[in-house]
Amino acid sequence: MKKFVSILLVCFLISGCARQEIIDRIKILQCVSFDVQGDLFKSSGAYASYQKKERLRLITAEAETFSGVWLPQNTKSDHQIVTGQIRTFVISEKFARKSIQALAMGLLRDQSVSNNVTIVISKQEISTIMSEALKNPPFYLSDLIKQNMEKGSTPLTNAHFMLDQYYGEGQDVYLPVVDQDEKGLIHMDGVGVFYEDKLRLLLTDKESFLLRLLKEKSKTMTGAYEFRGRENEVYNIRILHGKRNISYKEKDSVIISLKLYIQLKELPKAKNVIRKSDLLELQHDIEQHFTSEISDMLKKFQMNAVDPIGFGELYRSNHRNWNEQEYKNKTYPNIKFEVNSEVIISQTGVGIGAE
């Protein structure tokens, strides 16, 4: 009994020392944007307004340092600003092309910001993206990004991945891109790839999906994909699951093997999957398409001296005398890629091929 009383007393003492943060007496930032203007960092933070009719409200600030924006934001707030629940960082394309060094250092040093926070590049002005986000539920932007990483064409990434790519050797940073359509709706629009700390290359939505296939594990290798064939006919398929393997055959030769299990959704009218010859031809055309598109994308990476796949990291793990600059300047530009695509049509869809 005395032991139980002692434990209960300790619990009371511990709880009494804990810092209380009442929900309606703090401002919990959920989405933060960053832009640059000259030598200044411009930031906007969206927070839930529990005492107002608005779902989200903005608080803005400027500072000469990246982490310094929190101080002027606090001076404009009637309650303490809390950063522990931030789900999304939005950076302008101008910010990304200038340098993300301050962003990487800020994330590394600020332990209150989760490693799961997603970072996206905005093609539009930051103010228009944030204004549109305010019209939606509190976690709309982070949920949009998450959904496209799980089911769409956006490869998985977050602050943890970005910091590993930025500070690690043999790989380059890539971040998702958001844009707005003619009606102002926010949508995912490919991926931005960095050379060192500057944005160098913007990938299309299709290339973003191919990057995802080469980066992710077999369990998450799913999603819809549409392309035009040799005669401009439209193919719409769904990847159910797959496997990929990347290995160095020699010092300057890399073999990429891709095996995809797919479902046929929409096919050219001239094709009939009931006929075995047509089914085999479809299978061959889809395999050739993936082989060609991935090969072209890898050549684009070499031409721009970027390595979002991480071929350098794989090379470093197999070579004791690793030198990053020598690899970037001599080895990587001369690598010959051999892409082998295998497609297994697991499902043809109800009614496809029927006359």
Rank of each mutant, 00 (worst) to 15 (best):
M1Y: 08
L202H: 09
I23E: 01
L203K: 04
R200Q: 15
E266V: 11
S67W: 06
I22W: 08
Y235T: 05
E125Y: 12
L103G: 07
T157I: 11
N323L: 15
K135H: 12
V339I: 12
L202T: 09
K53R: 13
I86W: 09
E231I: 12
L8S: 02
R87H: 09
T204C: 01
R19A: 12
C17K: 08
G168V: 03
F12S: 03
N115M: 13
T83W: 08
L240Y: 02
L9D: 01
K249W: 06
L103P: 10
L201G: 04
A96K: 02
D205C: 05
F161I: 00
L314S: 10
L108S: 10
R19P: 00
S341A: 15
D181H: 15
K206H: 12
L203N: 03
K98D: 05
T157K: 00
E54T: 05
T75P: 07
E231V: 11
V82H: 11
V113P: 02
F34M: 01
R230K: 13
D110T: 13
W70R: 06
I7T: 11
G353A: 02
K27Y: 14
M188G: 06
R57A: 09
I26D: 08
S15G: 15
S67Q: 09
I7L: 13
M303K: 04
N136E: 14
K76R: 15
L201D: 00
